[in-house]
Design a protein around this nucleic acid. Structure first.
Length: 496
DNA sequence: CGTCTTTGACCAGCGC
DNA sequence: GCGCTGGTCAAAGACG
């Protein structure tokens, strides 16, 4: 009995598929199309009285069974289609909520900016609605009012009245990290210049600005400078700005001439830079920036400017608590946010996250506080090691453009990915998004040569970034709103 | 012809 | 005060 029933079952199954095959052949219809067509074709095949079928399937009971199977298949397919529709809707909703969350996230920073931007560049606060970017080297106060709440100020986001404007440039907007002791070596601090800054209990911006001015008066330092060391084959690295050479000197202790450039993007732009090759290693180009751009910047220039600006800010914050000649920690009592040369934004206040800014030195040279960002070696590998990987030391050419792009010019997909996934900024954007997020997708040559340390670094970076992001109450509430909305709107059929 | 680079001169700050 | 050094100016030349 059992054998007979299983035989019947097999036969009916065979018949079902045979019917479908016959229908396909006869009507030349592909199955992965609309199942209605298939059903129709199947029914047609059954009803056509195809001799090849009718020979085997002339039993009315079998026909009835086939009809049942077909209709049940149709029902199944309809159900699948319904679920597909629901999933499609869910996906759309998730994307929509994701964008909403992103907007909330951006709004959060934009709300914070007006408070901080005033201390950033008081001379650029006209609020004329132009795409003016305030980048301040050396004039930024390191003193932020102590906050009890979870709010943090990103000093490097561009201030703008209209917060809904998509064209808004955001500076230093990577991931915001609370920073552990930054390993900053105070090399050559003269006198007690950097220890004269006190920590004012400031509540009002007005008071703060006055105190800042007082402090600046007290400090005999000139404009802060930011040096960037990169391996570059050409005369100067392309940082997105237009420069005009106005002088050249042989500096003491270095046979390589130092070239002086000024920014020509605006006639009144006070920004200068000088470029010099490293005496020890001619392949290393040392570019030193000084001043604040007073004009709109291109995306790539903004990237570089924001980085140097952030570094200068870090310089100020570290100098407020550092002691000369000591390897010290970054300002643990201030809440200064800054970007690393790798595009990440760090917050130096709370020490819970294990991040530090590598290859960064602070020094004073002729009363110019100078921070040096050494991009000739990767954060976790020394140069000799990183050279084995072929990516640790960023090499620049004339066409190389630092890839810290802001979201405003998302014409390039890489730029956009870098913005949306700040972790991908690591290694100056030479690491693709996939490589950054998913270490297993590293290209073969790199994969073969790299150690697990780099993957661990990526994993740590991602983990810390995630932690930092998710620990932000505003981000969490936005995320919660999205999820709530998703669950509420999901209805019965959606499965998460 | 306009723009950019080169290069010597000049100036200011700093240390002795 | 003097010398050294870094930084800037400006005339001359190069270049497109």
């Amino acid at each position: 009995m059992e054998a007979a029933s299983s035989l019947n079952m097999e036969k009916s199954m065979f018949s079902f598929f045979e019917v479908k095959e016959a229908a396909k052949m006869k009507n030349n219809i592909h199955l992965h199309g609309d199942q209605t067509l298939v059903s129709k074709a199947s029914s047609q095949a059954v009803n056509d009285g195809d001799p090849s079928l009718s020979n085997e399937e002339d039993d009315p009971a079998e026909d009835y069974k086939q009809d049942g199977l077909i209709s049940s298949a149709k029902a199944d397919m309809g159900q699948v289609r319904q679920e597909n529709q629901k999933l499609k809707h869910t996906l759309t909703r998730v994307l929509k909520d994701y964008k909403l969350s992103q907007m909330h996230f951006n709004d959060f920073f934009q709300q914070e900016v007006p408070k901080s931007s005033e201390c950033l560049a008081p001379d650029h606060q006209e609020g004329d609605g132009t795409e003016l970017i305030s980048l301040s080297l050396g004039t930024l106060s390191s003193h932020k009012p102590k906050r009890d709440g979870p709010k943090k100020v990103n000093c490097f986001s561009k201030s703008k009245e209209d917060s809904d404007d998509d064209q808004e440039l955001k500076l230093g907007l990577g991931c915001e990290f609370d920073l552990t002791p930054t390993r900053v070596v105070i090399n050559d601090l003269k006198k007690d210049e950097t220890t004269q800054i006190m920590e004012p209990p400031v509540n009002s911006l007005k008071t703060q600005r006055i105190e800042d001015n007082d402090l600046l008066d007290q400090i005999p330092l000139k404009k802060a400078r930011v040096s960037v060391k990169v391996i570059c084959d050409t005369q100067t690295m392309n940082d997105g700005c237009q420069w005009r050479k106005y002088g050249q000197k042989i500096a003491k202790g270095n046979p390589c001439p130092r070239a002086y450039y000024r920014c020509t993007m605006s006639p009144s732009c006070p920004v200068r830079k000088h470029v010099q090759r490293c005496a020890e290693d001619r392949s290393v180009l040392i570019t030193t920036y000084e001043g604040t751009h007073n004009h709109p910047l291109s995306v790539s220039a903004t990237a570089m400017a924001s980085t140097t600006s952030a570094a200068a800010s870090m310089l100020k914050s570290t100098s407020s608590t550092s002691q000369p000649g000591l390897t010290t920690t970054a300002a643990s009592s201030t809440a200064t946010t800054f970007s690393s040369p790798h595009g990440m934004t760090y917050n130096s206040r709370a020490p819970q996250y294990p991040f530090y800014l590598p290859n960064t030195t602070i020094s004073t040279y002729q009363s110019h506080p100078t921070i040096t960002l050494d991009l000739t070696s990767s954060p976790h590998f020394n140069r000799s090691t990183s050279s084995n990987f072929g990516m640790g030391a960023p090499r620049f050419s004339s066409s190389t453009c630092l890839n810290f792009s802001s979201p405003s010019s998302s014409t390039s997909s890489s730029i956009e990915s870098n913005y949306k996934n700040p972790i991908a900024f690591s290694y100056l954007g030479r690491q693709t998004l996939n490589e950054a997020v998913n270490p297993t997708s590293l290209n073969d040559s790199y994969k073969n040569n790299s150690s697990s340390a780099l993957q661990q670094h990526s994993a740590e970076t991602i983990a810390a970034a995630t932690k930092a992001l998710t620990s932000n109450p505003s981000f969490r509430s936005a995320l919660a709103a999205s999820i709530t909305s998703l669950v509420r709107n999901a209805g019965g059929g959606a499965r998460i």
